[in-house]
Amino acid sequence: MGFKMTETGGIDPDTWNRWHVVGCHDELPDDGARATRLLGRAITVERRGSGAEVRLTGGGALPVKVAYGYVWSSLGTPGPLFELPEHAEADRRNLNGCSFFVRTSPPRAIENFLDMAHFPFVHTGILGEEAHPDVKDYDVAISTDGREVVASNCHFYQPKAAAASTGGVDVTYRYRVPHPWCAILYKDSPAKPGRSDVIALFVQPCGEEEIVANLALFILDDDTPLPALRRFQQQIFVQDKPILENQMPRRLPLYPRADSPVRADKASIAYRRWLRQLGTSFGVLS
């Protein structure tokens, strides 16, 4: 109410007032601040014990929160961050799988993360294989409070679903998108039947066409060494990077029938509809 886009440099109010990830807490340098960018502004992020300090470069302090292993900040007045209760489950290992800079818009990265159809062709022999290219029908909805997109009952054959996998399996997936640029995947755990590994993509919006993609793991795997877990995630993400960087336009088109997806990808359609509801204009073409 009474929100003036001029006060936010043209950034839409939903984006301006949200928490955004600005780094993995464990990977911040031991001494000094790290320079990075948030929504086109130069910022610095510095570790302070178990907390952190985030400042506009040459300017004032920004709101800061450490949650789920990452530092979050905002240019506006943020409300609560989304819940991720699995983070607190004692038998999970929580780690940063990888962080890579990518030349794409934040929503393009989320759409790629939600899209199972690319697995057989981009992650051949790991998350899919060309002999099993079909995405079976699944359910997708915007939650009744309008706060997240949920996709469930996704089934897919995967030759090597996780670092701990010993063979191919039919995997069940569930996705939550509780933030325009954060998506959380729940995936059958190979180690603990009946429970899910949780893999989240937290996108740092450096600019409208520049991001840092952070893959966060909250997994039920006591045995695989840390470097092997990171190696598995890096290999997968680096296969997506050139796909993302070659998608044109880099901003996600939100106008009606934009991109006209040949295969009607339900998750993508719901995600775009949700961004329109939120009034998101950063990183999109409307």
């Binding site: 940063n96 990888c98 962080s99 470097p227 092997a228 990171r230 190696r231 890096q234």
Partner: peptide, 10 residues
């Protein structure tokens, strides 16, 4: 024999 260049700088 994998060596982690990034982020561990092994």
């Amino acid at each position: 024999l994998p060596v982690e260049f990034y982020p561990a700088r092994e």
